[in-house]
Amino acid sequence: MKRRDFLDWLFWISGTTVGAFVLYPVVRYLVPPEMPEAATRRVNAARGDELAPGAFKIFPFGGEPGILIRNPDGSYRAFSAVCTHLGCTVQYRPGERMIWCACHDGFYDLEGRNVSGPPPRPLERYDVHLAGDEVVVEKAQTA
């Protein structure tokens, strides 16, 4: 190898190495640190007298929205409120007794099953029970 070729080679290798050393921390810096998932398994979603039959409420559940629906018979059901299509927050339409995502017209039935529109999967269902005057929502044991 000629001296000039060797120096050319050395120039590019050392330049690339310096570039990589500069870029690596920058790229790592751009990506936010993984925050450990809040270990929320149960939350007080509403007071017992807060929702009339047929009404619903969006409540925070471990950093994500959940939806609590009061059935006409006074019982409750709760799901993750994150649409399985593109992550919008769903709402309850009492007229049709359906859960609806306004972003792309996705519909779920009251079992959380995706029944129409683009959502590819059902909503995650949560357990609901009453504890005194509080409606407590809990991640299902299998979830």
């Binding site: 409540f59 929205p65 593109l86 709402q91 306004a102 792309h104």
Partner: peptide, 23 residues
């Protein structure tokens, strides 16, 4: 973050054709 997506929500018009395709 804790209210539902409002009815009639749509993106700016220049993303509209992609939005409609996905919908």
């Amino acid at each position: 973050p804790y209210v539902p997506a409002p009815a009639g929500i749509k993106p700016e018009w220049y993303f509209g054709w992609m939005f409609q395709t996905l919908r």
